[in-house]
Design a protein around this nucleic acid. Sequence first.
DNA 1: CCGAATATACTCATTCAGAGTATAAAGGAG
DNA 2: CTCCTTTATACTCTGAATGAGTATATTCGG
Lengths: 301, 301
Amino acid sequence: MPTGFAQAELIAVLVAVTTGQPRVMTIERGGGLPSGNLESSHHSLQAGLRSWVEDQTHHPVGYLEQLYTFADRGRGMDAGIGARRISISYLGLVQEQSVAGADQSEWHGWYEYFPWEDHREGRPDMLGQITRHLHDWAEGGGASRAERLRRASFAFDLDGRGWNEDLVLQRYELMYEARLVDEAGSLQGPGFGRPMMADHRRILATGIARLRAKIKYQPVMFELVPDSFTLLQLQQTAEALSGLRLHKPNFRRQIDQHALIEETGEIAQETRGRPAKLFRYRRAVLEARALAGSRLPLSRD
Amino acid sequence: MPTGFAQAELIAVLVAVTTGQPRVMTIERGGGLPSGNLESSHHSLQAGLRSWVEDQTHHPVGYLEQLYTFADRGRGMDAGIGARRISISYLGLVQEQSVAGADQSEWHGWYEYFPWEDHREGRPDMLGQITRHLHDWAEGGGASRAERLRRASFAFDLDGRGWNEDLVLQRYELMYEARLVDEAGSLQGPGFGRPMMADHRRILATGIARLRAKIKYQPVMFELVPDSFTLLQLQQTAEALSGLRLHKPNFRRQIDQHALIEETGEIAQETRGRPAKLFRYRRAVLEARALAGSRLPLSRD
DNA sequence: CCGAATATACTCATTCAGAGTATAAAGGAG
DNA sequence: CTCCTTTATACTCTGAATGAGTATATTCGG
């Protein structure tokens, strides 16, 4: 086989948020992410992936973006033939209403896999243990001890400068290096969080990190909620994704300052408390929004 | 050949800024981007690309990130065998001082390829022509006429809401659809800007767009300037990348508000005007900076 | 009719971004 | 030597956005 040939595979991180929990589509009862070989019938990667996912899951995928491409020497293959496996991963968002009918299928809460990432009810207790293990790992690092400490301290907020919810991948990779997750061959006893096959949990971490970064400067939450929603639903979606609790008045202000939504005129039919107005997303602003966010200090001439 | 096999190729967008011009490393006197087949000797994509680029160009690459993975049916190949070409593109940044010795090699100013993207001396005149052509194209769009107008108006700022320098790719793709660039088979006479082989100009557009977006929230300019630099150099680098003129006092304020740099104690040896202090980048803040930028309205409990 | 629960509306202080002005230090022209 | 051009650096003023907290509406279940 000539050089430059490889086996190509598509992997999807499909995300939905239901009842305040972020969920990801899996196969084999949570053991892996949906994936498949790149077929020659697919005209473009994006289009191919979309039709493939929709065939398999029967959910329309509102939003789809490429995540990352990995290449590892194919472990299950004959060595020496120069072939390797290329995995092209995608992040897809599915609206809650589409998931609703789909019984207790293969949607798993993503904090099963990353329990240390959910800070909505405060800093998880297990971070104490993780921190101790990371310290041990750093101490055994010889020359790289200082560097290990610096990385761990930064990613896990060991010096109290504030938890950065975006560092999902950095945290997972540190835990992998320190052998605190089963995929790395855990040191003693079971590792933290539920493992996945091959490097699927790492890909999931990449997807979560991307999504957490994205909600700050692009209105992607709207791809996850139903067409009409209350402000509380919207906030809870943002909280589910970021794993943080948000300040209600300021969240609302930010939303309507940017004129992201409009009232539908209807009222939510839930029981407790004062009924909430229903809103819909103003698709028109998707572009206007892209205009903002310029942090460069422009000159007027 | 079994399904799922493909030819894999690496493509690099290598960027440097010299004498106020953003440049990109090319092959064949500007006709294409450096590329090569994925070799089985490469252990990871990132590492493989880095060593490959440094072998070919003899420039150390300070910063390297994956851009995008394309898959197109290989046009030059036998059809029907199920193989296709996968192109994995990377963005790399090179410091000016490394380029200096490298004579008049294969570095080409990127505004040769995208002359309509340079707004440092005001809105380029050719945008008038481009706009007229785009209007014609939209008029001939039948049912999609309104949609075409909306896209063109947004990307090229036809209604004066302000030029968005990030939309490099959108603009190139519109011009491709309207056949205003030679790669699409230009309508009449030569297309706008200098063409490149295959889809290399599109990949370059992707790289420029990524870099323009990135300088707003990550201090990547420092990967492009020498180890010690003046504030004017730094600003001119930012201007070269964004294609915009920036407001000097505010640019300076932003830089030292974030404590990104420190004085070296030395003074630049240039002739005209008051001599400028030299600064160096404080690598320590790379992490602290990542902490900022949280636009989510957090709650305190 | 009261209180728990939720929704919605303001307030106040601080920081930050946009825009412009003022002063300092060099070299060159006369 | 003095003035003028050029670049560097330091402030000012204003308005917008953000962080944090408080106050007022509605509903329902007792």
